[in-house]
Amino acid sequence: DQPSCGQCGASLRVRSLVHALSLALFGRSMAIVDFPVGWPMKGHGLSEPGPHVDGLAARMDFSNSPPLPESVPGLLNRELEQAKPGSLDFLIVDDVLEQFAPPRQSAFNQAVGLLRPGAVLIFALPAEMREPEPGEGADRFRQKTENEEGPGDLPCNGAPGASLTMPEGVEAQIRRHLAAAGMQPPRLHKEAVPEFGIPSHHGSAQVWAARRPLASPQDPAEEGGDVFFDQHSRYASLGRILCELAEAEATVLDVGS
């Protein structure tokens, strides 16, 4: 993905990830520089280093592991072996999941396992998916498989290198993987955000957001959900509604109970 911000070089894919993250955390799309400093959330990224990584790390407990260019199954294990299961409020996975050979369910399970109840998984996949040309890209990873993703060769994404992508029906597969990992139905972000330079149909990435459900208080087998996170989501929505209803320059004094 080409840098497209003339100031910091952020690509369209990165801006789309930030948009999805901001919506998930705050209920509206904000620039990272407008995220509150000291926000009590813990996040991790599997992303190339860049200004978005630095910006998030300056505002909350955020760490990042660059994805390896020749990623193979086990990458999440290696990158995140230090991470505590169920410890993250959010995980950003930037163009990594598609590089796993089938069965990819394990990659989703590993990623979800790092999330606490109510936390979000934000991930980008290449938007362009097609069958590989003979001798192209993914040949050395090509393998026959009889798992749920069907037999046959793996497609590649047409990008330079050896990235693998999902076969046809990728959206349905992603939804199935996420559901099997226990996630709520995901959101595939297709909307335009013109103020941040994000067109509605762009060719660089699919950005998804999925949330791990809060534990039910009726289920003693589940660890309790994080009350703060839930309350924040509610107050963020309430605050947004108040802001939309209020006259310009009005001040909201309190959104407490």
């Binding site: 100031q7 910091c8 930030v18 067109p199």
Partner: peptide, 16 residues
Amino acid sequence: RHEFRCNVCGEASGSA
């Protein structure tokens, strides 16, 4: 050329 504000650095930029 399309002007926009970058949501990473917060600066005005162009050409999405």
